[in-house]
Simulated assay, not measured.
Amino acid sequence: MSPLEIILGVVFCSQTAIGVLGNSFLVFLFTFMFLTAHKLRPIDTILIQLAWANSLMLLFKGVPQTMAALSLKNFLDDTGCKTVFYLLRVARALSLSMTCFLSGFQAIAISPSTSRYIKLKNRTQKSIIPCSVLCWISHLILNSIILLTIKGTRTTRNISNLLDYGFCSTSTTSTITVALSSVVASLPDVTCVGLMVFASGYMMLLLKRHQKRVQHIHTSSLSPRASPEIRATRSIQLLVNTFVFFYLLNSVLVLYMHFKNPRPWLLHSSNFLAGCFPNICPFVLI
């Protein structure tokens, strides 16, 4: 085992452990609040699902990738690879959807309390659970197509038209087919990212207007801390910018690897970037 393999194993293992610990803390916190008869806010339902999705994503991505980095590439058979990669894709899609859902719910929650927005807020609170169930079911169904293309590395050593992910491989066909499939698969992701950016921009605009209305209150205050509006705006910016940055950068690398034979460092970089947001997300929320 080379020093590089040991370093990669430690990096992926540390990323997985820290991310799972942070997300598990959120799950434990909300579970404790529920068991102690505290009334959970509607937004807490989204946060619990986001923490679960991030934890599953880190586990199904980080553990196999750590073992692959330590040269244990043949520890999964074909069935194991299909199962792990399928659950990984479902968890990734749920993390994206719940982050988008979180931004949308926050945007509606801080909207002006007019009669029109009050009705929308009430409907939104009642639709959180049905929409969440719909997200889970739709992602479980849509990502089932991955079961047709993913193969275990044990049975794909001598096949040339494969894209190796370290612990699993996926079959590749012509450039046109890859391009079309990539565009179709990325449409839901692009839609969620667009809605997230729009909702976050809308929230920052509302918070900026509110800050101007109460500026005289904050000016007369002797506290050196930033106003609640500024702190909330910074948190929103940090969460959304972090997600968009890592998502776009990783998407470019994945798309490039579908057209070119990727070098090992590029594959490891893509795998590391894929775990950055679920790793950082709980600490931003905390």
Rank of each mutant, 00 (worst) to 15 (best):
L206T: 15
C100I: 01
T173G: 02
T79A: 12
G22W: 00
L58D: 04
T16G: 09
L266V: 11
G152V: 03
T99N: 13
V244I: 14
H258V: 11
N161E: 10
A68Y: 00
K212T: 15
M203P: 03
L70C: 04
L255Y: 11
Y247D: 13
P3K: 00
T177E: 13
T242W: 04
S169N: 10
S127K: 03
N23T: 01
R154E: 08
D78G: 02
F246L: 10
Y247R: 11
S186C: 11
R123Q: 10
R209V: 13
K212I: 15
V214R: 09
A93K: 06
D78R: 03
S223G: 04
S115R: 03
L285D: 01
I6C: 03
L120Y: 06
K119P: 01
M203K: 04
F12M: 05
T45F: 12
S269I: 07
I236T: 09
C192V: 08
W136Y: 14
I129E: 01
I176Q: 07
L239A: 12
T45I: 11
T83L: 14
L40E: 04
T45Y: 14
F12G: 02
P64S: 00
T36S: 05
L102G: 05
L120W: 09
R154P: 00
L285S: 02
L50Y: 04
I230S: 12
L266I: 10
H210G: 15
P228R: 04
F245D: 09
N261M: 07
T114H: 02
L187A: 15
F283S: 07
L94M: 12
T219E: 08
A53T: 00
V178G: 14
N279K: 03
L59K: 01
S181C: 09
I150W: 08
S269P: 01
K73R: 11
N158I: 10
Q49V: 10
S55R: 02
T172E: 08
